[in-house]
Design a protein around this nucleic acid. Structure first.
Lengths: 341, 341
DNA sequence: TTGTAGGCGTTATCAT
DNA sequence: ATGATAACGCCTACAA
C-alpha cells in the first residue's frame, strides 16, 4: 500500500486538492495568486487547508521555481553593537513581505565570508547581501555569476557592480575633523581600530588624514597594540595625553575605544572635554550614558537594513518601482553632539 | 534542444557525473560520505566539480531527504543587548557543522512568533529554536506535531516538553536579594521592566518577592510608566529615593534601567552606592564603563547558544553522544560584583 | 564499492 | 478559470 519513501507525513497540495475536489495546481494558485481563483473554489480550498492543517513546503516550491522566498545575508558579526540594528530592520522588512532571512557571520574574515556565500548559493536565495566592498577573489567570482540581486551594505563604493546601500567612511573621517577644527582644536589625534580585518575603519582614518592635511594640520595617528578595545583606549589616552604637547582632541575609530579611553582618563583624574575633547564613532547604546556623554557620529544602521530590503523587494517585483531600481543608495551619517566634544 | 523548463542554469550532479564518468548517486555520496567512494573516483569527481563550478542545490537535497541542513530560530529581538550573543554563538556553532541559520525576531509578540514558526516549518528545518516558555496556543500545537528537535532557550522550565537550555529567572531574583541582604541592606526595592511582553522579567520579580518574604523583608515593587528604559530608570530613582524612607538598595529588572536610574541620580547630585546601592541584570556591554561600574548578574547568553547548538547537533547525529541527548540543561548565571553595590 | 529506478512536493508550461 | 503533465535536482531504497 505505502510507497517506497516516507516524506514528511504532512498534508501536501495533492491532499488538499483531493479534499477540495480541485487539481493541485489550483491549490498552488490559491496561495500565489488568489485573485485568479473563483470564490467558490477559494472557499473549498480554504476549508480543506484548515481541515488538513496544510503547511506549504517551501523547499519544494523553491526547487520548482528556481529560487525560494529566502534572502541570505553575511555580516561581520551579530553580537557587536554595530550591525545588529541593520540585521533587525532588514529581517523585519523581509518578513513583512513573506521572505525569510538566512544569516551567517564572517567575524571580519573573508575566508569565512566566502564559505558562507558558497553555502548560501546552494539554497538558491532570492537575493544575497554582503557587508563592505572587501571580499575574496572567489567570492567576487561567485557573486558575479550568481543570477540574483546582490547588495553590498555599509560601504558605499559607486564604482562597484553590486547594488550599494551605505555611507562613505572617508567622509565620516573628514566630518569628524571638520567639526573639531571648527570648534578651534588643532592638535587632533586619531586612534585606529585594534580590530583586525575591519578594513572600513581604515577608510575613516584615511578621511581623517586627508581632511587634516587639507586644513593645514598635521595628521597624528596612534595605533594601539592591545586587542581589547577598552585596554586599547586606555593605552591611547596615556600615549596621547601624558606628553609635553598633549592632544587637544582625540577621534577614536569607534565608541568602544572612546569609552575605554575616557574611563581610564577619568579614573586617572583627567576631565573631559576640559583636558581633551573626545570624539567617537557608532553612537553605541551607552554613548549617552557616559559622564560626560559621548559626542559621536551615528551611522545609518537601521536605515541600511530598511533600504537594502526595499531595493531587493523592488528588484524581485514584490514592491512596485517607477523605472529601474536605484542602484546607488548613499545614506547620511548623523553628527551627534553631546558633552565630550 | 532545450527542455521545457529553465532551471538555474548551473551544473547539476548529473553533469558532474557525466563528466566524471560515474553515476549521479556516486557524486552525491562523494559529498555526503566521501569515505565510501574509492580514491580513483574521488579524484575524477573532484576534477569535474572544479571544472563545472558545481554547487550543490540544498533545496533539492532538502526536498529529497525530507529535511535540509537548516535550523530555524525565533528570538524576541536581534538588536537588543541580550540575545545577540546567543544568536552569534548558536550560528557559529551550526555553521561549523554545515548547518545554516534561518532567523526571525518576534519583538516579544507571540503572534509574530507564531507566524515565524509557521513560515519556518515550511522549510522543513532540521530543528527549531524558540525563546522562553511563553507561546500562543497555535504555536504549541505546531511544535507538538512538528517532527524535529524543538529547543526552548533562556527560560528553564523542566516540566515542559521541548528541550530546555536556560536558567531560572526566579533564581536570579532570589540571588539578587540574597546578595544585597547579605551586605546588610534591608529596604530593597525592585524596579520592574517597562517593556511589555517580556514575561521572563516578571519571573525575576517573583523571585525577588519570594526571597524578600522568606528573609522577613517587605517586598517593594515599583512599576515605571515610561516606556523608554532610561526615562523609566529616572522615574524610579525619583520615586524611590526622594521620599522620607528612601530605598537603601534598588534591583533593576535590567541594566538599561539601572544605568538610566544611576545617570539621573548622579546628575541630580546623588552618589552611588553611598546614597543607594544599585543592582542590575544582564551585564550589558556598558556595565563596566559606568561610573560607578555596575554590579549585575550575567546571564549565560553565549553558553545558551553553544549548548543549544550542541544538543541539536547531537540529536541530529552530527555529534556523538553517550546515551540520550540531555533534555534538561540548566546553566548558571554569574554574579558580577562591581562598584555600584 | 557502484548503479538503477523513482519519488520528495511544488510549480511552469501547455491545453482546454 | 481550471486542469494534465512533466520537470526542478537530489537522495532513499534496493540491486548487483
Amino acid at each position: 500500500m505505502s510507497g517506497k519513501r516516507k516524506g514528511l507525513g504532512r498534508a501536501t497540495v495533492h491532499d488538499v486538492a483531493k479534499l477540495a475536489g480541485v487539481s493541485s495546481i489550483t491549490v498552488s494558485r490559491y496561495f500565489k495568486q488568489p485573485g485568479i481563483v473563483s470564490q467558490g473554489l477559494r472557499d473549498r480550498i480554504a476549508d480543506a487547508v484548515a481541515r488538513l492543517d496544510y503547511l506549504p513546503n517551501h523547499a519544494a516550491g523553491g526547487l520548482a521555481s528556481t529560487h525560494g522566498r529566502i534572502v541570505a545575508m553575511v555580516i561581520p558579526n551579530i553580537s557587536g553593537p554595530i550591525f545588529a540594528n541593520t540585521i533587525q530592520s532588514f529581517s523585519d522588512e523581509l518578513n513583512r513581505h513573506g521572505y525569510q532571512l538566512l544569516l551567517a557571520s564572517s567575524s571580519f574574515s573573508i575566508e569565512k565570508e566566502e564559505s558562507a556565500v558558497r553555502a548560501f548559493l546552494g539554497w538558491s536565495p532570492a537575493a544575497l547581501v554582503l557587508t563592505s566592498q572587501y571580499h575574496s577573489e572567489e567570492t567576487e567570482r561567485l557573486i558575479a555569476k550568481a543570477n540574483m540581486p546582490i547588495v553590498e551594505t555599509w560601504d558605499y563604493v559607486p564604482a562597484r557592480n553590486p547594488l550599494q546601500v551605505g555611507f562613505s567612511h572617508v567622509e565620516v573621517g573628514r566630518q569628524s575633523v571638520a567639526y573639531l577644527h571648527g570648534k578651534g582644536y588643532e592638535r587632533i589625534a586619531f586612534v585606529q581600530n585594534s580590530m583586525v580585518g575591519d578594513l572600513s575603519a581604515l577608510d575613516r582614518r584615511d578621511g581623517y588624514i586627508a581632511q587634516m592635511t587639507e586644513n593645514g594640520l598635521k595628521p597624528w595617528v596612534f595605533v594601539p597594540t592591545q586587542a581589547d578595545p577598552f585596554e586599547a583606549g586606555r593605552q591611547a589616552i596615556n600615549a596621547l595625553l601624558l606628553r609635553p604637547q598633549p592632544a587637544e582632541a582625540i577621534i577614536f575609530a569607534n565608541d568602544n575605544l572612546a569609552a575605554g579611553g575616557m574611563l581610564a582618563g577619568t579614573r586617572a583624574g583627567m576631565s573631559f572635554p576640559g583636558d581633551c575633547a573626545i570624539f567617537g564613532f557608532g553612537n553605541y547604546a551607552f554613548a549617552e550614558l557616559l559622564l560626560p556623554s559621548l559626542t559621536t557620529i551615528r551611522p545609518p544602521a537601521r536605515e541600511i537594513g530598511e533600504i537594502a530590503a526595499l531595493r531587493i523587494l523592488q528588484a524581485l517585483g514584490d514592491i512596485p518601482v517607477e523605472g529601474a531600481v536605484p542602484h546607488l543608495n548613499l545614506l547620511d551619517c548623523e553628527l551627534i553632539v553631546r558633552e565630550s566634544a
